[in-house]
Amino acid sequence: MTTAPPPTLEHTCEVALRPNDFDWAGHLNNSVYVQLLESGRWEWGRAWGGDLSESAPVAVVLQLRLDYLEAVGWDPVGRLVVRTSLAERTAYSFTLVQDVERTDGTVVARGRVRLGLVDRDTKRIRRADLDALLDLPRSTP
């Protein structure tokens, strides 16, 4: 019997850039990429039915890897695309892979973020039951 691979749950969103996102040299500031990834994660969660803003579990970043691939030059009214998908699930964490792209599809940064769930009140780690948290498509046997 073969089991279907878990869904990747891909989601894509556009994020607007602001003048203060750029450094003195006219490049997108390195810290803004982390904010772009966070925006992409919020949109990913909402797209799959998991808005954690009012829920008991809170998603916390356990590990973040970010590779800067290409500079983004001054464009204070530009937009970038954040593509997010599920890469891995364990009992107590899940990992998302995220690409930051120009609107033409050029990947300018690539991130990998491992998240855990913490109880909002007790601050204790919780099982990362994505099936209960998100509105995931049911796999057929």
Rank of each mutant, 00 (worst) to 15 (best):
G45W: 00
T106V: 01
C13G: 03
A71Q: 13
R127P: 04
A109G: 07
T3H: 14
G78N: 10
D104E: 04
S139F: 10
L36I: 08
M1W: 11
S31L: 09
T103G: 02
L28D: 10
A56F: 01
L52K: 06
R46T: 00
T12R: 09
R89A: 09
L36T: 08
L36E: 15
P7G: 05
E101S: 07
H11N: 01
L37K: 13
L134N: 02
T95Y: 10
E70N: 11
L52S: 05
P141R: 14
E38M: 13
L80Q: 14
A109D: 06
G26T: 05
P76C: 13
D104V: 04
V118I: 09
G40R: 15
R79N: 09
R127L: 02
T2G: 06
D23S: 01
K123E: 01
R46Q: 03
V60D: 01
E70W: 10
T95F: 11
P19Q: 07
H27T: 01
W74D: 04
R41G: 04
S31H: 12
E14M: 09
L80N: 15
L69R: 15
R46F: 00
L86M: 11
G45A: 00
M1L: 14
L66I: 11
D21F: 06
I125S: 02
L9V: 02
A16L: 14
A128M: 13
V113A: 10
L9P: 05
T84Y: 08
F22L: 09
D104N: 00
S93E: 09
P76A: 12
R102M: 03
V108I: 07
L28A: 09
R18Q: 11
D129V: 00
L69Y: 12
R41D: 08
L17F: 11
E43D: 07
R102P: 03
A87N: 08
D119Q: 10
V77E: 12
H11Q: 05
L28R: 14
A87H: 09
D99R: 08
V58E: 00
K123Y: 04
W44T: 00
T84N: 13
A128D: 02
H11E: 00
D67H: 09
E38F: 10
L37Y: 15
P57I: 07
N30K: 10
R120C: 00
S31P: 04
D75Q: 14
